[in-house]
């Protein structure tokens, strides 16, 4: 006699469990920060613990804790004024350049708090490089000199060594093929997108651990943007990248992890509202405000 049940559907497998308690969808859906911390320990580039940041008496950022993973791109998104740029400046002690600015909490780089009193901020900035929104090559320097501007400040290098660094970093920044025949022309003679990649190469020449990018492609056309994004794909093989972006699709395309910053009420400090894998943030974020923001329903 044939057994017709064998021909029927897949979820028959579940039959034996029919008396089990119901699945708890919502709970399964959540990931706790503790789990993140545990799994990430070995691949940590930086870790931020309970960071508060101030401009004078104004608290711009409150109680931010975040893990930045090695060889990954972490994107920071959120509405204007929510503290993303402030936060990223807190990662290499650029924040304190602003008069009256101060920081509470810890930012660990290789296990060391960069805000510890004995730490030299210049050393921090060599390890954690920054690329800004507007390309800012040194106007009086050639392409070549721009790339090595940072390392010139350090120990002496041989000419052949410098040549090697220039080629290597320009390749990593996906610019080499476009500028190899005009290394001696002024840096500002390049197009906007090329200038931005030149600035990336200049940052790479110092051999930082982490590269911070504050809206690096917001002033560029789509083709240049795509080249920056391609460069980033290359970069994360060697470096850790943290990028602030207002372009949600860019965050979705290039990043592995996404942090959403948010201010609940005008005048309140910004907070890290949700932090998760980028796939999760853009498919089913855990918090309503994140979903409203990424779907464009915000405000």
């Amino acid at each position: 006699m044939m057994d017709p049940k064998e021909t029927t559907r897949e979820h028959d497998l579940d039959r034996d469990q029919a008396n089990e308690p119901e699945p708890r969808w919502r709970e399964v859906n959540q990931r706790s920060p503790e789990n993140h911390a545990a799994e990430a320990d070995t691949e940590l580039a930086m870790s931020v613990e309970n960071l508060n940041m101030y401009y004078g008496s104004f608290k711009a950022l409150q109680d931010v804790s975040m893990i930045i993973r090695r060889n990954k791109v972490t994107a920071l998104i959120g509405p204007s004024g929510c503290g993303k740029s402030t936060f990223i400046r807190g990662l290499n002690r650029m924040h304190e350049i602003v008069p009256g600015a101060r920081v509470e909490g810890k930012v660990l780089l290789e296990g060391e708090n960069i805000y510890a009193s004995e730490v030299d901020p210049v050393r921090v900035r060599r390890k954690v490089g920054m690329v800004f929104q507007k390309p800012n090559p040194f106007p009086t320097m050639s392409v070549y000199d721009n790339v090595i501007a940072g390392i010139r400040l350090g120990r002496k290098h041989k000419k052949s060594e410098l040549d090697e660094i220039v080629e290597k970093t320009l390749r990593q920044a996906a610019l080499w093929n476009e500028v190899k025949s005009k290394l001696k022309v002024g840096g500002t003679a390049l197009s906007g997108g090329q200038q931005q990649r030149l600035c990336i190469a200049r940052t790479l020449a110092i051999e930082p651990e982490v590269i911070l990018m504050d809206e690096p492609a917001s002033a560029l056309d789509p083709v240049s943007t795509q080249k920056i994004e391609d460069a980033m794909e290359e970069l994360k093989k060697r470096y850790t990248v943290v990028i602030v972006t207002h372009n949600m699709q860019q965050a979705a395309r290039i990043s592995d992890y996404t942090g959403f910053f948010y201010i609940e009420n005008m005048g309140d400090p910004g907070k890290l509202w949700e932090f998760d894998e980028t796939d999760k943030i853009f498919s089913s974020p855990s918090r309503k405000e994140t979903e409203d923001y990424v779907t464009g329903r915000f405000g």
Binding site: Q17, E20, P23, W25, V28, N29, S284
Partner: peptide, 27 residues
């Protein structure tokens, strides 16, 4: 079965979680 699957689609729509994977994780 199509009826059951339509219900499962609703679960995915609301929670982002696949009903099967939720069951599997639970087990």
């Amino acid at each position: 079965d199509h009826g059951v699957d339509i219900g499962a689609c609703a679960v995915f729509l609301v929670t982002g979680e696949r009903i099967e994977s939720a069951m599997r994780q639970y087990r």
